[in-house]
């Protein structure tokens, strides 16, 4: 066991896969010589050299097009899009080309590639560098979407994503880069499509993703002290989605609260609520409740951004209010 930051886990996860497989290449803006704008890829150029770790021009379509063309011809590229907001300038390659081509060609091509991107708010960067775009990605058939919340998950899910034969969007939570966690020694390999029950309670289930996971956990501690005993689930993977684990916990506790950083409309929690209501309605003791960022662009000022993104306090008061009704 070693303690690593989420940021350090990125380079470790990529390096683990690049050592194992010479067909894994890595490209993006400022990723090689500079080690990444978030310093998440420091050391990769030194270890793997400039042929496998490549700086690109500011050309997001070219970055993802290159990854796609390489993946369909035998390689396993990892591409970085610096901020997930920038998907908006290369979304065509992601949704029209990468996501659909396997289906359209009747299975003639596969896209074993990973697209990493810094996602989410908390850094006071304003509306164009802070979005949580997981709900954009989840809406597209043909994309797998994972969002790790701990350093160990960064490494394990990165390994699973690189080894997966399908395209995976790997959203790294920018607010979590400095956070620390224990990481097992040796190779760490996880599985896509498995949620994790972090804490088991009797009264309610809080379902959270990414940066909302530590907040939901902290809220559960406070709620427990007040007599509301909560399960906390880290969804980890939106596609494939581990409905099994979530439905089981919701059925056991009778209540579900989603904690989502994405803006409200069509957030991942809305899909979960619909699944729970359709499939587990008679296990519910009350209406499912979504705790989300409001449907607004994110403001820059710390005071405003803190009001927008679900906080520990907002989670606690929302759950208390709903449970005491």
């Amino acid at each position: 066991m070693a303690e690593l930051t989420y940021r350090e886990a990125i380079a470790r996860g990529i390096a683990q896969e690049m050592r194992r497989d010479g067909n894994v290449l890595f490209l993006g803006e400022d990723v090689a010589a500079a080690g990444g704008v978030f310093k998440g890829t420091t050391g990769l150029l030194d270890e793997f050299g400039p042929v496998r770790v490549r700086d690109t021009p500011i050309s997001e379509q070219a970055i993802l097009g290159a990854a796609m063309g390489a993946a369909m011809t035998g390689l396993r590229p990892i591409a970085e899009i610096m901020f997930s907001d920038f998907f908006a300038v290369c979304w065509d390659i992601v949704v029209n080309e990468i996501a659909k081509s396997r289906y359209m060609t009747n299975g003639q091509v596969s896209f074993p590639l990973v697209i990493r991107a810094g996602n989410g708010g908390g850094l006071r960067f304003g509306a164009q560098h802070s979005q949580s775009v997981e709900n954009w990605a989840m809406a597209v058939p043909g994309l797998k979407v994972v969002v790790p919340s701990t350093p160990a998950d960064v490494i394990g899910l990165m390994a699973a994503a690189v080894r997966d034969p399908d395209p995976v969007l790997f959203l790294e939570e920018k607010a979590l880069y400095p956070t620390k966690g224990e990481v097992p020694d040796g190779e760490v390999v996880d599985t896509l499509g498995r949620a994790r029950v972090l804490r088991s309670g009797a009264h309610a289930t809080l379902v959270a993703l990414g940066n909302m996971v530590p907040r939901a956990t902290a809220a559960a501690e406070q709620l427990g002290a007040g007599g509301i005993d909560c399960t906390v689930i880290d969804v980890r993977s939106l596609v494939p989605l581990d409905t099994h684990t979530i439905l089981a916990e919701v059925a056991r506790t009778g209540r579900m609260f989603t904690v989502e950083e994405n803006p409200r409309l069509c957030g991942w929690g809305a899909e979960l609520v619909s699944i729970v209501v359709e499939e587990s309605f008679f296990d519910l003791d009350g209406a499912p409740v979504r705790i989300t960022t409001p449907h607004i662009p994110l403001p820059a000022a710390d005071a405003l951004e803190d009001l927008a993104i679900p906080s520990v306090e907002r989670i606690v008061t929302t759950v208390e209010k709903a449970m005491n009704q």
């Binding site: 993802l64 097009g65 390489a70 029209n96 080309e97």
Partner: peptide, 19 residues
């Protein structure tokens, strides 16, 4: 989608170059 395949062709060429 107009132009989309030009960067993708670059990727296949990159792969050929690497291999």
């Amino acid at each position: 989608i107009i132009g989309a395949h030009l960067p993708i062709a670059c990727g296949a060429a990159w792969s050929a170059q690497y291999r």
